[in-house]
Design a protein around this nucleic acid. Structure first.
Length: 270
DNA sequence: ACGCCCGCCTGTAAGC
DNA sequence: TGCTTACAGGCGGGCG
């Protein structure tokens, strides 16, 4: 659910609200929340640190500690939320970690499905491909990713090692905007199709950030203040199965790629 | 190496 | 009405 746009909205919120704040203490209660290291090590490295910058790498949130190499890394995975509140606000169920700030506010990590994680590291979070929201990301970069690949286009777009930040929603939306089918062999794209897809990805992500991300029916994503986004009202194919295509009027269909839903217009996408 | 599938989780909603 | 089942999906691991 949280993909690049949702994580970017959260990063911007953190930049405004949290950068400059000092951590007093951290309480980790979730059994799986800190799993790349001893939770005690994370608590020790965070306690007393100042949060000096808010960054993002693909879907990872990065908070620099004391300007140094240590970085607090947060991945929301499916259902994670990072919420900044007053300490007397009711603590929601599935609150797995609380970062207490010096001014009394709490930064809470809430995650019903427990796939999300926190860790403190000096290393990059994982082997990530280029960030498609980076202004220096060009059509030739995308051409290099798809060249010679047999994998289906959508699978490649969602492979974080090739391109960092797209998930199920925005890959479907970008493929619709580009007029391309999800199951095209990636390497079969011509130069003009690659250019179209590049533009579609850039514009799709930018629009989603403008609308502060997508919050689906099940609630999932909210910003740092607990508010939902509005981009779900601008989806053009995602979760629109059985409804008319907004471009041609024919019916949007839902297919399966692996165990995941894929939405497309068979007329507009080829 | 490459491509693809499963399992990890739990809340919600549809189906019987 | 109450129970069961399907579904949501990012990503690591493992398979062919």
């Amino acid at each position: 659910m949280p993909e690049l746009p949702e994580v970017e909205v959260l990063r911007r919120d953190l930049e405004v609200e949290v950068v400059g704040a000092q951590v007093v203490s951290v309480v980790v209660t979730g059994a799986r929340t800190v799993r790349r290291q001893d939770p005690g090590e994370l608590v020790t490295r965070l306690a007393g640190a100042r949060l000096t910058a808010a960054g993002r790498a693909g879907k990872y949130l990065l908070m620099a500690l004391d300007g140094g190499p240590d970085t607090l890394v947060v991945h929301l995975r499916m259902s994670g939320q990072l919420i900044l509140t007053a300490p007397d606000a009711p603590r929601p169920a599935h609150t797995h970690a609380v970062i207490h700030l010096a001014d009394g506010r709490e930064l809470r990590f809430v995650d019903p499905r427990t796939f999300g994680e926190l860790f403190v590291s000096r290393e990059p979070p994982g082997p990530l491909g280029a960030d498609p929201s980076d202004p220096s990301w060009r059509p030739t970069d995308l051409a290099g990713v798809v060249a010679g690949r047999q994998a289906r286009l959508k699978a490649l777009l969602m492979d974080q090692r090739r391109l960092a930040g797209l998930g199920n929603i925005y890959s479907d939306e970008a493929l619709f905007a580009a007029g391309l089918r999800f199951d095209r062999p990636a390497g079969s794209l011509g130069r003009r199709e690659v250019a179209r897809l590049h533009g579609a990805i850039v514009e799709t992500l930018a629009a989603a950030v403008t609308h502060r991300g997508s919050t689906l029916g099940d609630g999932g994503y909210v910003d740092l203040h607990g508010r939902p986004g509005a981009h779900q009202d601008h989806h053009r194919v995602y979760a629109r199965e059985g409804r008319p295509c907004l471009r041609c009027g024919r019916t949007v269909v839902r297919l399966r790629l692996g165990n995941r839903s894929t939405f497309l217009c068979p007329t507009c996408q080829s």
